[in-house]
Design a protein around this nucleic acid. Structure first.
Lengths: 334, 334
DNA sequence: GACCGACTCGAAAACGTTATCGATACCGAT
DNA sequence: ATCGGTATCGATAACGTTTTCGAGTCGGTC
């Protein structure tokens, strides 16, 4: 527990025999300091292990070179995005900070939002938000949203083609001969959830197959409530022969529920998911699903954010393609 | 892209008709301001949506109420810890920030360490570190290490009983009749990896079973290199009948390698892991493993950190128990 | 040999907050 | 009335940086 005095710019200045102003210039690579001086200062900085104080920097220059990524929770989906973003940040000269809004807590929500705003406004230059909670466009700093919340906000976004993906999934099930297809949708305030349901309905209509409204239900955003919804669906007398789950997590929990009810996937029930989180390849049976390039989405979001801050003109809505990944959780009817 | 001026303390002070000093007092709940004034100020704060500037706060008071948790990478292990920590932080009045050191990049390592130090010294009050990279005890702020790196550092730590867990695993394999047991150990600079190997050897010795040195190898810390090690092990003419992998990730990749080589787990090869990350329940076959209470470890680490900062006297080395979780990846020999 | 420009450098103000400490107001008691 | 003592409040000096701008130096040119 050694207490070590933090070495500050004035320390560097003193030992190098120059003023703090000069040190600051050297640190930031500004013009106007002689070659020899700069090298000497660099030397001292290195020896003393000087690090700029983020607080002071932020206070004075309103720039910290730190970016944030805000996730609702650390689940597989956001973890993949995190990975992508943290890889992308490497060369950019920025530092990445992740924080979780701790969603799901009811009472604490005000507190969370406050401290969130506190971070945002003051110590990060911009943020990627991956959370269904309301976004505050009112802020003066840059944000880009991944898989954005519904609403009239025109935030820069990156998402994947949810509609097309849902069509892909539904058509696949249809091509296997299924017609009684159930859909467990995600939380309805997510644009992606709406689009997936829309894609599902559109594909069904296209195929001339009526959708039984009792078979499309919204699963909670929590894994447990998805299980509840799945159980309801599978308890129907004329239960569906296939289920298109709104995301892999609910697909996985559907499979678990099915197994618990004595149903065999894929023999008695086909299940297809959405996202292609790493877990979906591991479960038994391996889950057929729609791939979103999660890591790439994280990376794109970060790059977009960096560009926005740098002020480069570019398209601020990125939509990445989805893809059908066939594994073993679906099979032809009969 | 509306630019909104950040509302500062002086704004609040002006509209409330008091001085900034007073506002500061009511914000921090200090003694010495009249009831009525405090309420009025609170009101104004609310109306204007005032949030303190972290930068200024940190600069002036060296206290930010923000804690950090540093992970090497966002893999299942650290993600579980993250969850635990972020749940624990909720009531504590602190805000939690996660950052990844982006380990594995060779060249950038200097840069990472620098910016890391920058964050540490200046904008967070303490940190939980979950990374095998060298820890800097030299700092003046509080850290607690989870699953610490080896070395003479006497940092506050929380870990699980790795030795006992390894004994548990080995004895289980032994009790199944296995004697040719392989061990894939983790990166050798992790104390936990050393302890697991030690536990393995101890249990073997206790049972009077000699360990074949060709069967204990260190797998890289990456999942791919673990696969390489597993392949070597399984290619031996007298290959082991069981493998105790140093962690679940290498156990899982061992199972994959085994399958690719035409070996059936558990019929031809028993595999046991360590950690009990969520993935281990999902893989096929479900992995028998040693459970560490990961989320609880994260929570304990955070609580310890908070206590340390608060200056409460307490035990600074927490060791949580491990447990054998029997699933389907092991079976009796023959 | 005076002057001009280019080049280096440092003094000082500002960023938004907290902490100290003196000023003021008010009260009851002498 | 005067006084001591409490409440309550506000000026002000930090905290460590960045940035502006004026001062100083030096070499070269008429």
């Amino acid at each position: 527990m050694v207490f070590q005095q933090r070495v500050k710019m004035s320390d560097v200045a003193r030992t190098a025999g120059v003023s703090v102003a000069t040190v600051s210039k050297v640190v930031n690579g500004r013009y106007g300091v002689a070659r020899a001086t700069a090298e000497r200062v660099q030397q001292v900085i290195h020896e003393l292990g000087y690090e700029a104080s983020l607080g002071a920097q932020s206070l004075r220059s309103h720039r910290t070179n730190v970016l944030g990524i805000l996730v609702a929770e650390f689940e597989p989906f956001s973890t993949e995005l995190l990975k992508g973003a943290s890889q992308e940040v490497a060369g950019s000269g920025y530092q990445l900070l992740a924080y979780s809004s701790g969603d799901g807590e009811g009472a604490a929500v005000g507190w969370e939002r406050r401290s969130l705003a506190r971070l945002s406004g003051t110590l990060i230059d911009g943020a990627v938000i991956v959370t269904p909670t309301v976004v505050e466009t009112e802020n003066s700093f840059h944000v880009v949203a991944v898989d954005p919340h519904t609403g009239p906000s025109d935030l820069p976004t990156v998402d994947s083609d949810n509609f097309a993906g849902a069509v892909l999934a539904t058509n696949y099930l249809l091509s296997l001969g299924h017609t009684r297809i159930g859909h467990i949708s995600g939380r309805s305030d997510l644009k992606s959830a709406q689009l997936r349901e829309a894609g599902f309905r559109s594909a069904m209509a296209e195929a001339g197959v009526p959708v039984d409204e009792r078979l499309v239900r919204v699963g909670g955003f929590r894994i447990e409530s998805a299980a509840g919804t799945a159980a309801e669906l599978l308890s129907l007398i004329d239960r569906p022969s296939a289920i298109f789950a709104g995301n892999d997590l609910s697909a996985i929990s559907t499979m678990t529920v099915a197994r618990d009810m004595g149903l065999c996937v894929p023999n008695d029930l086909s299940v297809i998911g959405f996202d292609n989180v790493p877990e979906s390849a591991l479960v038994n049976p391996p889950l057929t699903t729609i791939m979103q390039p999660l890591q790439r989405m994280g990376a794109e979001a970060l790059r977009l954010l960096v560009d926005l801050i740098a002020g480069v003109e570019r398209d601020t809505h990125i939509r990445l393609p989805t893809e059908l990944v066939i594994r073993s959780s679906c099979r032809p009817l009969r």
